[in-house]
Each structure stands twice: as structure tokens, then as C-alpha cells.
């Protein structure tokens, strides 16, 4: 049964991607991207990757199409017909590469086998011992924030850097302070009354849900990355319906920019704290006397740092794009 759902979802994914190849026009492409994101999130649920599905549903079906839409709103949705046309060459190249890759997959272990090499090395140790060592049932959270905390620190810094890069790329050339519009550019002739009322009742619960995902991540699917994305989507939804000035009054841009650095700082300081006590970087055992308790505190603080950075970087990126839209868009 699971296998049948797997096949159906994968076929739908291929169909969506093929439609993306065929369709002209950016608006339709973006809608298909959103569908693609939702389908892959459903696929991840079937594959037991509930934490990943969470993130992909919010990112792939929500935030990513939204940023694309904002850019298209500035640029225009037209896609030129014959631009970059060397289809024969492209088909040949893609065909050969694909054929080689398929030949490569023939040596792969069969799908879903419990004795595949990927499942033999570190994963059994995580599954067997992480419960005793950290006292946290969700293995994904404990691996993410404790066993592979160095990795996660790297990822968080990449996200932070991307936020800074977006600000630098988009802000240069315009005066950031003055470019921020103060008169409401939202169309007053056509207020989104129904959308505003409904979203106003839902956004508080979305934010509450983000906190639930953040702090329940130890026991069920969830954690800093997912919570950050969900929190940011709530804020972005408000911004979409009430306009950039309104959301900038609620959450001021300098504050978010500060917060995006604060999250990385919280993460790094936790690491340095253990170094100051003569232990390796990000060794949580110094945080409390009981080793399991120490792990739990460490993981919670790290996840908090991740959540703050992810949420504020996404909000910062949204501000940068929405600012472009409101100053240059039509």
C-alpha cells in the first residue's frame, strides 16, 4: 500500500516537472513549483521523513514560490519564446547524462532494504544509543543538535550569510532608509477584506504553532528549522495582506536584522561556553551536572538559536524583496 502511494506521488512529481518544462510564462511556472513542493512534502511523509516534510511544506510550497512571485511582480511575468534556444544540444546532453546516471543506479542496493550499506554505519548507533545519551525521543533532533552540531552550525552560518548577501545585493543603489515607503501603497480601492479578516484570526495560531513546533521538537517532529520557517511564513502572510509598512511597524527591520545575528551568536556562545571550561567546542556536558540534563539544555538552546536565525533571515529576505516590489513594482 505504501509502495503504491510512493509510485503515485513520484509519477505526479515527474508530471509536474514535465509540465514545468513545457509551460511558457513565469506565473504558471511558479504555481507548478508550488505544487511540486507540496507533492515532494507528501512524498517525504511516505518515506517516514516527517521533519523534512514539515520543512518542505513550508518552504517548497510556501516561502519559495512567494519570493519567486515577488520577483516576478517586479520583473514581469513574460517569458521570451526563443531565448537561449539550442534544444537539440540540450536534449542530447540531458539524454546522455541521464542514461549514464541510470546505469549508475543499477549498482545501488534495492530500495528500502534494511541491510543497505547506508543503514549499517552510524545510523544504528544513533537509533540505539541516542535515547540513553540525550533522553530525547526524536532522533532527528538529537542528531541535528547534538551529534552533528558542527554541521548545523555551518548551515546556520550559511543561512545568515545568505540573508546578509540579499540585503547587500538589493540595498546597494537605493537609500535603504528613504526607500522604505511610509504611505500605504496597498490598493485602497480593493482591500482584501475577507482575506484580512480570516488571516487575522489565523496568524496568531500560526505563530503559536511555530512555538509548539520549536519546543515540542524533542518529542515529536519539529525543531528550530521548521519552527523558524513556520514563524516566518506567518509574518510574511501578514505582510502580504496588510502591506510592508504595516508589518514594518510591528516588527522593525533593524530588530529582525539584529535577531538574525543573535541566533548565530546564541549558537556560537554555547560552543565557546564549553571551551571556556576546558571541554571541546559544543560539548554540552558543562551545562549541567547530570549529563542527560546537560544534553537536553544544550539541544534546546541550540534549537532556539537556529529558530531565531532561520525566522529572522527569512523575514529579512522577505522585507528586501517586498521593498523592491513596492518601490519598483507595478
Amino acid at each position: 500500500m505504501e509502495l503504491a502511494v510512493n509510485i503515485v506521488l513520484l509519477s505526479l512529481l515527474v508530471t509536474t516537472a514535465a509540465a514545468l518544462v513545457l509551460v511558457r510564462g513565469l506565473l504558471a511556472s511558479i504555481m507548478l513549483t508550488s505544487i511540486y513542493g507540496l507533492l515532494s512534502a507528501s512524498f517525504f511523509v511516505i518515506m517516514d521523513a516527517v521533519d523534512v516534510a514539515f520543512t518542505e511544506a513550508a518552504v517548497g510550497a510556501g516561502v519559495s514560490p512567494l519570493l519567486l512571485l515577488l520577483s516576478v511582480a517586479v520583473i514581469g511575468r513574460h517569458e521570451a519564446r526563443n531565448a537561449g534556444a539550442r534544444p537539440l544540444f540540450a536534449v542530447l546532453l540531458v539524454g546522455i547524462t541521464g542514461a549514464l546516471l541510470i546505469v549508475g543506479t543499477l549498482d545501488m542496493p534495492a530500495f528500502g532494504r534494511a541491510d543497505a550499506p547506508a543503514h549499517l554505519h552510524v545510523a544504528p548507533r544513533y537509533l540505539l544509543l541516542s535515547g540513553e545519551e540525550t533522553g530525547i525521543p526524536n532522533v532527528v533532533t538529537s542528531v541535528l543538535a547534538s551529534y552533528r552540531a558542527y554541521d548545523t552550525l555551518g548551515e546556520v552560518i550559511v543561512i545568515f550569510t545568505a540573508g546578509v548577501a540579499v540585503i547587500l545585493i538589493l540595498a546597494s543603489g537605493t537609500h535603504r532608509g528613504s526607500a522604505r515607503p511610509h504611505s500605504a501603497p496597498v490598493d485602497t480601492k480593493d482591500p482584501h477584506t475577507i482575506l484580512q479578516v480570516v488571516s487575522k484570526t489565523m496568524i496568531p495560531f500560526m505563530l503559536l504553532f511555530a512555538f509548539y513546533v520549536q519546543f515540542h521538537g524533542d518529542y515529536g517532529p519539529g525543531g528550530g528549522f521548521q519552527a523558524g520557517v513556520i514563524f516566518a511564513s506567518g509574518i510574511i502572510l501578514y505582510g502580504l495582506l496588510y502591506g510592508l509598512p504595516a508589518i514594518c511597524r510591528v516588527i522593525r527591520p533593524p530588530v529582525v536584522e539584529l535577531c538574525s545575528a543573535l541566533g548565530v551568536l546564541v549558537y556560537g556562545v554555547t560552543g565557546i561556553l564549553s571551551m571556556l571550561q576546558g571541554r571541546p567546542f559544543l560539548d554540552y556536558s558543562v551545562l549541567a551536572d547530570d549529563p542527560i540534563r546537560a544534553q537536553q539544555i544544550g539541544i534546546m538552546v541550540i534549537e532556539l538559536g537556529v529558530g531565531i536565525t532561520v525566522a529572522s533571515v527569512l523575514i529579512v529576505i522577505y522585507y528586501a524583496f517586498a521593498n523592491q516590489f513596492e518601490t519598483n513594482g507595478n
Binding site: 480593493d190 482584501h192 475577507i194 482575506l195 480570516v198 484570526t201 489565523m202
Partner: peptide, 19 residues
């Protein structure tokens, strides 16, 4: 959530199409 969001999204779609 579905009872709230589903009709709203239909409304948003129809309105966007009309506009």
C-alpha cells in the same frame, strides 16, 4: 483550519481572476 482556509482560498482565486 480547513473550514476557514479552503473557502477563503477559493474566494482569493476567484477574486484574483476577476481582477
Amino acid at each position: 483550519f480547513v473550514l476557514l482556509s479552503s473557502p477563503t482560498s477559493s474566494h482569493a482565486l476567484a477574486k484574483a481572476a476577476w481582477n
